[in-house]
């Protein structure tokens, strides 16, 4: 990363693993649970958040000196909401199919506390460029977790990935199913997203002992 100074690179790299927004900062859990039954939805959501957080962080950072502290929450929310609504309207007008896939997430993006959390904790106090990197880094860290959970839930729950059967056909009993394997439909239910997430955290903290809470 010749373009970025060491400090800037850390802004992107840290949130990917050691300071991951989902598993360490506990932000953005709701959406991680709501949409990870399918890998595709997880990827779409990850990209949408990347986009909104990147731009939103820059906007908030640009405005950081003129936002009155008393109404900063409202201002932050209005910025996200406006951004998301305009994107939604543009998509509806010019890419209707895509907007149908995304429309489910519009509400979830606005209320995703990752976005507010980064506005509040970072963009309000840092320069636009750094805020942009921070936004991208955190959104990517969020995306990684989402894709991981989505991968396991779709694979174990429905035996497919991105809608393509990978373990054989459960009705015709081919592939793994011929050996008596069954899909665990329970994985598709939201409680299992929590438990999957718990196990991911377990794995992550077993590797990096410094993250263990006392």
């Amino acid at each position: 990363m010749g373009l970025l100074s060491k400090k800037d690179a850390a802004l992107i790299k840290d949130p990917l693993f050691d300071n991951n927004p989902v598993t360490i900062q506990v932000l953005g859990i709701c959406s991680a649970l709501a949409i990870t039954a399918e890998l595709e939805a997880s990827i779409v959501m990850a990209i949408a958040v990347l986009f909104v957080l990147g731009i939103g962080n820059v906007l908030i950072s640009l405005m950081r000196n003129i936002i009155p502290s008393k109404i900063r929450i409202i201002v932050q929310l209005v910025v996200v909401a406006t951004l998301v609504i305009i994107v939604d309207l543009v998509l509806k007008a010019y890419a209707y199919e895509l907007s149908k896939t995304l429309s489910v997430f519009v509400g979830l993006i606005i209320t995703n506390c990752i976005i507010m959390g980064r506005f509040e904790a970072f963009a309000l106090a840092n320069s636009p460029w750094q805020s942009f990197l921070d936004g991208i880094g955190n959104a990517a860290g969020y995306g990684i977790i989402l894709v991981m959970v989505g991968f396991f839930r779709e694979l174990l729950g429905a035996g497919t990935l991105l809608g393509i059967p990978v373990l054989g056909d459960p009705i015709e009993k081919t592939g793994l199913y011929a050996l008596g394997y069954e899909n665990n439909g329970f994985m598709l239910l939201a409680p299992m997203a929590l438990i999957t997430l718990g196990i991911i955290i377990w794995a992550q903290r077993s590797r990096n002992k410094a993250l263990i809470e006392d």
Partner: peptide
């Protein structure tokens, strides 16, 4: 549907 759960109701 407008917003059923992806992978389930959707």
């Amino acid at each position: 549907h407008k917003g059923e759960t992806a992978g389930l109701g959707a």
